[in-house]
């Protein structure tokens, strides 16, 4: 599958890289809401936010924040938008998770906004109850995952100890 961001990482694209390390790439793409828009994304291919490991997401967010500060100070911006388009329905164009940093000035005519709605109370309440229940379900699923991981961790520890024994045995054998 063709991925614009992987192409940038592998230098198959004309898009210039502003910064890169082992995990994160910062690029200035040609299709932007406004000149000066900067894209921060993980080097590894993750399609949507939900697939990005926590440590990589943290790193991307910190770098996006630093880009935001750099934009404030060097492009003369009066504000920034930090945005993730997650899923086709959310306007995501490239199937590779990214954080966009959009520099803003007053009255720049950029339509990065929405119409605030006044929903009927019962509709708000149903949305709330659905999310509240969903949160409980998510918590219990994640607890189970943690438990399972703990078990896996134990297995690994045992395996490591075995290795250690083997190593000792091997070195014993080496003694003439």
């Amino acid at each position: 599958m063709k991925c614009e961001h992987c192409d940038i990482v592998e230098r198959r694209s004309k898009i210039e890289i502003l910064y890169e390390d082992e995990e994160v790439v910062v690029a200035i793409k040609d299709l932007s809401i406004t000149p000066g828009q900067i894209t921060v994304f993980p080097k590894q291919h993750f399609t949507i936010l939900e697939g990005v490991p926590e440590n990589i997401l943290e790193k991307c967010s910190l770098i996006a924040n630093k880009i935001g500060i750099a934009v404030f100070e060097s492009l003369g911006s009066q504000g920034t938008n930090i945005m993730i388009q997650n899923g086709l329905g959310a306007g995501q164009k490239v199937p590779h998770f990214a954080i966009e940093v959009v520099p803003r000035v007053e009255n720049d005519g950029i339509n990065l906004t929405w119409e605030a709605k006044q929903l009927p109370e019962d509709e708000m309440e149903t949305a709330f109850m659905t999310l509240e229940q969903g949160m409980k379900d998510l918590d219990s699923v994640e607890e189970k995952e943690v438990e399972r991981k703990d078990e896996k961790g134990k297995d690994k520890k045992i395996a490591k100890e075995d290795d250690k024994d083997n190593y000792l045995l091997k070195s014993l054998r080496r003694i003439p």
Binding site: G79, I82, I84, N86, G87, L88, V105, L112
Partner: peptide
């Protein structure tokens, strides 16, 4: 994404008046 019938989410931050 799990509990509402939607096809995506936006994570959005506005820093400063000019950014809304």
């Amino acid at each position: 994404l799990k509990v509402l019938k939607v096809s995506g989410t936006n994570i959005f931050v506005a820093n400063g008046l000019a950014a809304g």
